[in-house]
Amino acid sequence: MSLSTPTQEDMEELLLSCRYGDLEDIQQFVDKFGPDPLATARDDNGNTVLHMVAGNGHTDALDYLMPLLPASLLAARNNAGSTPLHWAALNSHLAVAQKLVQLPGGPGVDLIDIKNEAGRSPLGEAETVGWEEGAKWFVEVMNLDEKAKGEEELHPAEGLENVEVEIEDAEGQVARMTLGQKPTSSASESNRTT
């Protein structure tokens, strides 16, 4: 039996079903068209089926959809650069946020670091709306190891002792300073007993 191809109207109905958490309609769509179109459904703002269920806290629909979708859809961004996890955070849906982050084979805690066009991560969205429970959970599970994010540890440069620097302010005054000077002990320090 071959599956038919959904029309634009069918795709719009699917997205509405996801928005309102109508699991029966979502299942009927999959029965009729198969799971493949689920991954390509987008509204005019670039929102996916996961944006719709995550933003509205529909855990039953999320549980049904996640095994049918590629894990990469968890990091899909809408036109504002927001992922489904941004929407879950913006609307304070902890169970949904946990399912998105904890999906085996998915991006995992890296989802928490994705920034949208406004420059906010899902943690930032949670903080913006005052969702303390979600912000606390994000901090508990996120990867805080800076080295794991590819950041290098800063080390002082060697051989840069006694570098003379001149700084001119807006009024033409010049200040001179020496960088890298080793502090010398003063007479009062050397006379102290320990």
Results as ranks from 00 to 15, higher is better:
P35C: 04
R19T: 05
D113H: 14
R42F: 06
V165C: 09
A118Q: 14
H58D: 07
E153A: 13
D110M: 07
G119P: 06
T178L: 09
Q8M: 03
E164S: 12
F138Y: 15
T193N: 12
G105L: 11
K32D: 11
T48N: 06
A97S: 11
E125D: 15
A61E: 04
C18F: 01
N56K: 13
P183Q: 10
M1T: 08
L3Q: 08
D43F: 03
A97E: 04
Q8C: 00
L160Q: 14
N47G: 08
D63I: 00
R120L: 15
D25M: 03
M11D: 02
E127M: 15
V30K: 09
P107I: 05
H86W: 04
N191V: 14
E132L: 13
G130Y: 06
R192Y: 06
Q173C: 10
D43V: 03
G55D: 04
E168D: 00
A88L: 04
T128E: 13
P84W: 07
T193H: 11
Q28H: 10
S4Q: 12
L69H: 02
L74D: 03
R192T: 14
L90K: 11
Y64G: 03
G34E: 02
D22N: 15
Q173S: 12
Q102K: 12
L38W: 01
E171P: 01
W131S: 13
L90P: 02
A54D: 05
N162C: 06
K115N: 06
D43C: 04
P37W: 04
A80G: 06
P183I: 04
V96D: 02
G119W: 12
M177C: 14
A118Y: 11
R77A: 11
L103K: 13
T178G: 00
L69G: 02
G105N: 11
D145V: 14
E164D: 08
R176V: 08
G21R: 05
A89W: 03
L23D: 07
M142D: 08
T178H: 06
Q98K: 15
T184W: 09
E146N: 09
R120W: 12
I112Y: 03
T128R: 15
N162L: 10
E153M: 10
R77C: 09
N143E: 15
G180A: 06
P67M: 09
E189K: 14
N116W: 04
H51S: 07
S4G: 08
D63K: 12
F33T: 01
L65Y: 01
N45Y: 13
A175T: 15
K99Y: 10
P6Y: 01
V49P: 03
P156I: 05
Y20M: 06
L123I: 08
R176C: 08
E151H: 14
S92Q: 13
Q28F: 00
G130D: 11
Q181N: 09
P122R: 09
I114R: 03
V129T: 11
L73I: 06
A39L: 02
H51Q: 10
P107Y: 08
M177Y: 08
A135V: 11
A39C: 07
P122S: 10
M142G: 08
Q28G: 01
M1S: 13
S4F: 04
T83M: 05
E127R: 15
A71K: 13
T184D: 09
L68P: 01
